[in-house]
Simulated assay, not measured.
Amino acid sequence: MIGLLWHAAVLAAAGIAAFLLLRRIPAGAPRTPAAEPEPPSVPAQTFAEIRWWERRLASAWDDPGKYPSLVRDRLADLAAERLRLRHGVGDPARAVEILGDDLHRLLTAPDAAPPTRAELARLITRIEEI
């Protein structure tokens, strides 16, 4: 019987010791609140490209004769690339169907007058939608 009490006392002492040791272990480093996500940064190259287009458009407004080589040809290349990548279009008839007559004429007609700012904005929006 004494042996049984001895084992019970050792187990009780071990339990109390474990409890006291566990209480002394720190819970961990205090948690800092999650930082708010930073807004996505715009690469510097994007601003350079925007300035490049601004200069081209300004030159085209100053000298409408430069519009075909400075702006229209670049927009036509962009539209052709989008047609190829997103629609797999290589056929001119299909391209006219997707672009629409007015947009196709603005991009391809050699004697087309430079569009107004509103027309140019509509043209660019339409190309983005392709």
Rank of each mutant, 00 (worst) to 15 (best):
E128P: 06
A12V: 13
L20F: 05
L5Q: 13
H7M: 15
M1T: 15
P68W: 01
E36G: 08
P92D: 10
A35Y: 00
I16L: 09
D111C: 02
A80F: 00
A48V: 15
E119C: 05
R51D: 15
D111G: 04
I130A: 01
L75E: 03
E128R: 08
R94A: 14
H104M: 03
L120C: 09
L123E: 07
D111A: 07
T108I: 06
D62F: 01
G65A: 08
A12Q: 06
G65Y: 04
A109S: 10
D73I: 12
E36I: 12
R126M: 11
L123C: 13
D77W: 04
E54D: 12
P64V: 06
R86S: 11
A58L: 09
E97D: 12
F47L: 12
R126Q: 13
S69M: 11
V42G: 00
E36N: 07
G90N: 10
G88D: 11
A93R: 04
P68V: 09
P92R: 04
A18P: 06
L107H: 01
A48M: 08
E81K: 04
T116D: 05
L85E: 13
L99R: 00
R82D: 11
E36Q: 08
I127P: 02
R31L: 13
R126P: 11
E49F: 03
E81H: 04
A76W: 02
V71K: 00
L57D: 06
L4D: 15
R55W: 04
I50G: 01
H87N: 10
P30C: 07
R31Q: 14
L70C: 07
A9H: 06
S69E: 14
S41Y: 04
Q45G: 11
A29C: 09
R23M: 10
P37R: 00
L11W: 07
T108N: 03
G15V: 12
V89W: 00
E38M: 06
P39M: 06
A12E: 08
L120D: 07
R72C: 06
P26H: 06
F47W: 08
P114Y: 00
Q45Y: 09
P26R: 05
R31F: 10
P68Y: 00
A112T: 12
R72E: 06
L4G: 14
L70Q: 05
L99A: 04
G100H: 02
W61I: 14
R51Q: 12
